[in-house]
Design a binder for these strands. Structure first.
Length: 107
DNA sequence: TGATTGACCAACT
DNA sequence: CAGTTGGCCAATC
């Protein structure tokens, strides 16, 4: 099982309308300092599998840092808003409220 | 084959 | 308070 596959497993388990962070996923995989690779895995995933809800993964500030890797720079925001997550200026509103921590929820 | 680089984060200067 | 640095894994050059 590769690192990226583990990441995809977690990302696919994120409930609709919830979001998590790169760091949280990395921490769940016991690689707290490997949060960079989570983003890297997302980049590969969107080329390989398109079933990965990468829009539910943001950085620790709740900012849509990876929006540039979607079709358009607003795709990520629109998908989140479709699921009931409000986004303003590329930031999640009520970030803590929608935050879904795999370390807690999947335990 | 060794060096560089990410959709990051925390600690340090 | 802002800029730099080290760390992690895998892929690309």
């Amino acid at each position: 099982m590769n690192f990226q596959e583990q990441v995809w497993e977690v990302v696919k388990l994120i409930p609709k309308g919830k979001i998590t962070t790169y760091g949280a996923i990395a921490n769940y995989l016991s690689k707290a300092k490997a949060s960079r690779m989570v983003g890297w895995a997302m980049n590969k995933s969107h080329q390989t599998f398109k079933n990965i809800p990468a829009h539910r993964v943001v950085n620790r500030n709740g900012v849509l840092t990876g929006k540039n890797h979607f079709n358009t720079t607003v795709t990520m925001q629109q998908k989140l808003e479709q699921e009931g997550v409000k986004v303003k200026n590329d930031k999640i509103i009520d970030f803590k409220k929608h935050f879904w921590d795999p370390n807690i929820e999947l335990l």
